[in-house]
């Protein structure tokens, strides 16, 4: 206890000695770890370049304006592709995520000892690996193109959607499920009448949210050849066409803002 008696007066301390020591030890090791890591980064850094950075940034900045507005004609198709990668990828992910979620949820999994761990492994693998890495893999397998992008987005999104969905399934009100079971309903009828209505709002909300994230992600997949506006970004960067880069960044900015607005609208309308 942090309260101690000292001859006449009671001493009050914020923490007792042991917690205080642990507290300082944690801070000490945390700081030491950070400093050590920083030094490792610093060793690999050309500080000469970094010191020069303001000048380079100013130089690039001056090259970036004004944007090359004519270039926009070449951006409509890539933007359409970007939108499709995000949308079709999300849809594909939804289709695949639903069964995974039911397998992973403790209360609906048909085999908690075998299938549930597999489903959880699928979820964590999908979540651990960025869609850009999935694209890298798929471009290497399927060749460059929109298809690789769609599948990459889907593979990355399965884990996200399935995780949030199975958590929702685990939190449902079991009484409602019991009531449906009591009517003599079959297993699939129990799911349709007892579980689906309870998780539908989460499902819709998560889908719209993920679509919004996927728009952002699909803007860069082109950098590794998986289609969309990233291809144009890569091409413009390769020839150092900074005015085109500005325009592309501007278009990405507007697209993302638009998708954010649309998904917020959709969430409000549905939930």
């Amino acid at each position: 206890m942090p309260i101690e008696m000292n001859s006449q007066e009671k001493i009050w301390k914020h923490r007792d000695r042991k917690t205080q020591l642990t507290h300082w030890a944690l801070w000490f090791f945390g700081t030491a770890l950070f400093v050590w890591c920083w030094q490792l980064v610093s060793e690999k850094t050309e500080w000469f370049f970094v010191l020069d950075a303001p000048a380079i940034a100013a130089d690039i900045g001056s090259r970036m304006v004004p944007p090359r507005w004519e270039y926009i004609d070449k951006l409509w198709v890539p933007l359409w592709d970007t939108l499709n990668i995000a949308t079709l990828g999300t849809l594909l992910a939804l289709v695949l995520a639903v069964p995974v979620a039911f397998l992973a949820a403790r209360n609906t999994s048909p085999s908690p000892t075998l299938l549930r761990p597999i489903a959880l492994l699928v979820i964590v693998s999908s979540r651990s690996i960025n869609s850009l890495i999935w694209s890298l893999l798929l471009v290497s397998i399927l060749g460059p193109g929109v298809l690789a992008g769609i599948i990459a987005i889907a593979l990355r999104s399965i884990g996200f959607v399935a995780k949030l969905l199975y958590e929702a399934i685990e939190e449902i009100d079991e009484n409602q499920v019991e009531a449906i079971k009591a009517t003599g309903a079959s297993r699939s009828q129990v799911i349709a009448y007892g579980i689906v209505p309870q998780i539908l709002p989460t499902f819709v909300g998560v889908s719209v949210f993920r679509w919004d994230i996927n728009i952002r992600e699909s803007t860069v997949l082109g950098l590794v050849g998986a289609g969309g506006i990233g291809l144009q970004l890569q091409a413009s960067l390769n020839i150092l066409a900074w005015p085109q880069v500005t325009l592309i960044l501007l278009m990405i900015f507007l697209t993302v803002l638009f998708s954010e607005w649309l998904s917020a609208k959709a969430r409000h309308a549905i939930i």
Binding site: K44, T45, E46, V50, I60, T219, L223, L249, V256
Partner: peptide, 19 residues
């Protein structure tokens, strides 16, 4: 708004390659 990789490209251009 901007995916990390886009920011990374700009920062690599400004600060050079590396961590």
């Amino acid at each position: 708004t901007f995916q990390e990789v886009i920011i990374a490209i700009l920062f690599v251009a400004i600060f050079g390659f590396g961590p």
